[in-house]
């Protein structure tokens, strides 16, 4: 069939370009996710801080990035970060004209949005563990940092997997928005292919299948991680913890 020829790898077909776009999509998602997780912990830590200013900043961050549509956040950040970077470097080297790559703008925007939801995941996971563990660690004389690293974090992991797994799927789908700012991710490559071959239904269906496959793989991986993290935890313990 004619259509399989369109997907050929090499010069005659679009297969290799689509795979390249898939690579960019995965690269963006895989670099954004760890940053978003770190930011989630930071935002949650700020929300329970004893200084009111820090609390207000964290709550504002969450409210703003949960209410704005992701595409609006992305567009504002892309255009404004360019202006901001030029303004800052204008103090150091007047007349400089740096540009912010779409990849970086997408990275910043998506990590800010995902961390807004991620801070809630961290809060729920910490609530599920309870204060007893921190109190016990403090009575043993462990420093706060060691407590977090060796006592809280291993237990938090099990409760956080469903929430963060969900956010990973949301992140995968939101990376398609960066095609609007001309980063050649999967959707953008498909649009280019369509502009030359005039077969929109076929190509959009193909990348739709790519995305669905990615999501199915991710949910499988999430279930495996949940299963492994719950090893040795009986149902009675799971109900209490």
């Amino acid at each position: 069939m004619d259509w399989l020829k369109l997907l050929a790898i090499g010069d005659t077909g679009w297969g290799d370009e689509l795979l390249h776009g898939l690579g960019i999509t995965l690269a963006l998602a895989l670099t954004t996710f760890p940053i978003a997780i770190l930011l989630s912990f930071a935002i949650h830590w700020a929300k329970v801080s004893k200084y009111r200013v820090i609390r207000v900043v964290a709550h504002t961050h969450t409210t703003v990035f949960k209410t704005l549509p992701e595409i609006l956040t992305l567009l504002i950040l892309y255009y404004q970060s360019q202006a901001l970077v030029n303004w800052i470097t204008g103090w150091i080297v007047p007349g400089s004209n740096l540009s912010v790559s779409p990849f970086l703008a997408g990275l910043i925007a998506l990590s800010l949005v995902i961390s807004a939801y991620g801070s809630e995941v961290v809060r729920a996971a910490l609530n599920a563990i309870g204060r007893g563990q921190t109190e016990a660690a403090k009575s043993l004389g462990l420093s706060p940092f060691i407590t977090f690293r060796k006592v809280i974090l291993p237990q938090l992991w099990r409760h956080a997997i469903p929430g963060f797994g969900n956010l990973w799927v949301i992140l995968l789908k939101d990376t398609s928005l960066v095609s609007i700012i001309a980063l050649s991710d999967l959707l953008h490559v498909a649009t280019l292919a369509i502009n030359t071959t005039r077969e929109p239904f076929f190509f959009y269906l193909v990348i739709g299948a790519f995305y669905v496959a990615l999501v199915i793989l991710s949910t499988r991986l999430q279930k495996t991680l949940e299963h492994r993290a719950s090893k040795g935890i009986t149902r009675m313990e799971a109900r209490d913890a």
Binding site: L177, P200, G208, V212, I216
Partner: peptide, 22 residues
């Protein structure tokens, strides 16, 4: 699975450009 797995943007393009092809 199909409509939760695909990004909304892809679904929009599929309906507007894709079905517009026919």
């Amino acid at each position: 699975n199909l409509f939760r797995g695909m990004p909304l943007l892809v679904q929009l393009f599929l309906v507007y450009y894709g079905l517009g092809q026919f």
